[in-house]
Design a protein around this nucleic acid. Structure first.
Lengths: 192, 192
DNA sequence: GAATGAATGGGGGGAACGCCCCATGCCCAA
DNA sequence: TTGGGCATGGGGCGTTCCCCCCATTCATTC
């Protein structure tokens, strides 16, 4: 992504952060016209960093780079109000066009993203907690272990898992995972 | 796929089968120069149909169309000795080129397939039975149900599942499925 | 204030899993 | 002949699942 940014031309890189917390701190200090947020870097807790950046540097535009292609996650970014949204395999040309539009006051969502969103998420709407539990299930943790990770009771994990079963119309973890992968809700796990 | 084939030009369609068994029968009758085998159609039991076609019409070239992108399955087709291998999203131009090469005595594997195989299968080698059990696990069946489907004991299903756990270095069905999806071994379930 | 959704957490129990042990037969290569 | 891989199948047992029942609090909306 660095190469893509460096090849933008009329853009001066004023700072580069190693993690999300550093990104927030550097934004407060420099108040850049544009923050390019790679949500794959450490401590870049999704829209939390974005919310903090919005608070401390409200005039900074924020363009998000993500590897996650799950439609639910992409829709969340747009709903959060980011100024730009790109996938990591974005072409130089499209990035250049998009950044120019963002800097001139507009918003730009990568074409592949709008297409994917237009196809619609084939998966059901999930609550934040359900999404979290699903991710942990997919990582292979037991209900007990998920409870420990999320600081909730295994009973609560069971309740969320049951809700996932209902929403996906399945009755087992195996069927749930297959349905979730099918719906593109776990695409981030398919990437390196 | 029919449209792709019809647009090939200098090719006469002598018969069209509705399933794998019919394809074998029609090959025996017509002994065509080329059979285009859509392994997605009914009773097209993978390389079994191919093996039968080879037996009954050895001079017929066989080009396989598949939606399955798992590298292990693609490698199996090539190892089986098919004359051509294409994915269902093959372009007209590439298909035309490939078929011409096949008819002139050569072999053609779609470029996207060779690229994918060059990347290497990130998954472990599985036996035929393991692959079958994995597919059934992914479809959400219980061990008992899988045994019923495959006409084997649930204990044997457990044994195969345990072997899958070892090969993927996991200890649960959830982790197994995620690893298998990641390795592209269940890609066929991600397609419509 | 009431209703609803989300998140939380408990008991209970039958079913299923996951892994240990035990074992056989077939096929093929050394 | 031996050994290994594959496929097969059993007992036993602790753990986990899955689903039923019960329940609370908080925030939001009407």
């Amino acid at each position: 992504m660095r190469e893509l940014v460096e090849n933008l031309g009329a853009v001066e890189v004023v700072a580069e952060a190693g993690d999300g917390l550093e990104a927030i701190a550097l934004c407060r200090k420099h108040r850049p016209d544009l923050l390019i947020l790679d949500v794959g870097m450490p401590l870049a807790n999704g829209s939390q960093v974005f919310a903090d950046v919005r608070r401390w540097s409200p005039d900074s535009k924020v363009a998000v780079f993500t590897g996650f292609t799950a439609t639910a996650m992409l829709a969340d970014w747009i709903a959060a109000g980011v100024d730009g949204l790109f996938l990591k395999d974005c072409s130089q040309a499209e990035l250049t066009r998009g950044i120019a539009l963002i800097l001139s006051g507009g918003r730009y969502v990568m074409e592949a993203i709008t297409e994917r969103l237009a196809e619609g998420s084939s998966g059901p709407d999930l609550t934040d907690r359900e999404r979290e539990v699903l991710a942990h299930i997919a990582s292979g943790l037991t209900t007990k272990q998920i409870g420990e990770q999320l600081f909730i009771s295994p009973k609560t994990v069971e309740k969320h898992r049951g809700a996932l079963f209902e929403k996906f119309n399945v009755t087992s973890v195996a069927a749930l995972l297959t349905a979730a992968f099918k719906a593109g809700m776990l695409d981030h796990l398919l990437q390196e």
